[in-house]
């Protein structure tokens, strides 16, 4: 189990041919393949972070008049973007939620309030988890890293 390296020369000089011993190298490769196959993670999963407010947890210390509360309400008709006293409905396009328009509106709000980093996603009971994840993902893309998922009934809207 070796490889000869031909370097030519058939004269009376001493031969410079050398045999590489590949046994340790093949052993190492075989062990590495076995180890990596055993420890391989075939399902790549990740997580989406959300926070929960309430249950006795203290709120932010900022005076309430300085806070502009941003809530994305998800209901059967689409989104309703609530920023303080203003409400902007974003209806569905056919059967699909209009995530593109929601992203644009959230970006506009972020440009107007660069310090704002939190958003609440308020959902109705019948909304599917996939829609909520997409909504939270859209909010994260619009640079709102602090996301809370709450019940629309408890949001007071």
């Amino acid at each position: 189990m070796s490889v000869a390296v031909e370097t030519g020369g058939k004269s009376g000089k001493k031969a410079v041919n050398a045999d590489l011993n590949l046994v340790p190298y093949i052993d190492l490769l075989t062990c590495m393949v076995a180890f990596l196959l055993i420890t391989a993670v075939w399902s790549q999963l990740a997580r989406l972070e959300a926070h929960q407010k309430g249950q006795g947890q203290a709120g932010e210390e900022t005076p309430p008049e300085k806070i502009v509360k941003l809530v994305v309400v998800v209901n059967g008709e689409g989104f309703n973007l609530v920023a303080g006293e203003d409400q902007q409905p974003i209806p569905k396009r056919g059967d699909q939620y209009d995530f593109e328009k929601l992203a644009n509106e959230l970006k506009k709000f972020k440009d107007a309030h660069p310090d704002k980093s939190d958003v609440q996603v308020a959902s109705e009971d019948t909304i599917k988890f996939e829609t909520l994840v997409k909504t939270m993902d859209t909010a994260l893309t619009a640079r709102f890293p602090d996301i809370s998922l709450i019940d629309a009934g408890g949001a007071g809207i």
């Binding site: 990740a46 997580r47 926070h51 249950q55 988890f129």
Partner: peptide, 9 residues
């Protein structure tokens, strides 16, 4: 207080 949702990246 920190609820994370498992997703497919």
């Amino acid at each position: 207080q920190n609820v994370n949702f498992a997703v497919t990246p």
